[in-house]
Design a protein around this nucleic acid. Structure first.
Length: 192
DNA sequence: TAAACGATGCCCT
DNA sequence: GGGCATCGTTTAC
């Protein structure tokens, strides 16, 4: 296994390039259909304040996960990108479930009414796959959470961009990317 | 030691 | 489509 080249791109290019890649935990796999880019130069990124105990992972070499807790409840999964010493990461916002659907349903519980609810949000996909903050800093190729290339037959999708979700700063940047028309994105039709 | 704050999700209309 | 619950972590005193 070799590191996906997308992880070494500038983050605004890495985020759309990661669409179509797979994330696997145990026997559960999903295809990335929605991402957001975060970079230390803009204030919405955790790395904007510099290196702290919390943000240290963001400055690592590409090839590790940055996992943190949001709203005291949800674990959010990011792939660290660019180069060592630069705080940049791609937030994985939604997956299209590919295998291990039964266990995803069991982990999500009865609130997931349909399979569209399994991984259609950054907190949801972490719960469905079993990702927690103890995976922060782990390797994307050798750790418990595996990043893989797009599955056979996957074709380069049409990509829609728009403003990022749930932030109050730098909202003018069109750094949210999703697969056009995919039903598993967390908020369809980002620009209407 | 204490207060504020979310890179959200869920339930209700 | 919109409003609110929720609680660990961070940051300030």
């Amino acid at each position: 296994m070799t590191l996906p080249p997308a992880l070494r791109l500038p983050v605004a290019d890495a985020a759309p390039a990661l669409l179509g890649h797979t994330v696997t935990v145990g026997g559960r796999t999903g295809v990335i259909v929605e991402t957001e880019a975060y970079h230390e130069a803009e204030p919405a990124c955790h790395a904007f304040i510099g290196r702290t105990a919390r943000t240290e992972t963001l400055f690592a070499a590409p090839g590790v996960w940055y996992v943190y807790r949001s709203y005291g409840i949800h674990a959010l999964l990011n792939a660290v990108v660019e180069t060592e010493g630069v705080g940049a990461a791609v937030l994985i916002r939604a997956l299209e479930p590919l295998s291990g659907l039964d266990e995803m349903r069991a982990r999500r519980g009865p609130t997931a009414r349909t399979d569209l609810d399994l991984c259609s949000g950054p907190g949801k996909l972490s719960q469905a796959l079993g990702i927690d903050v103890d995976a922060n800093g782990t390797d994307v190729l050798r750790g418990a959470i595996r990043l893989g290339p797009p599955p056979p037959g996957w074709e380069a999708p049409d990509i829609v961009d728009g403003p990022r979700i749930g932030i109050t700063k730098a909202t003018e940047l069109p750094w949210r990317f999703s697969v056009a028309g995919n039903r598993h994105v967390s908020r369809p039709r980002p620009r209407a």
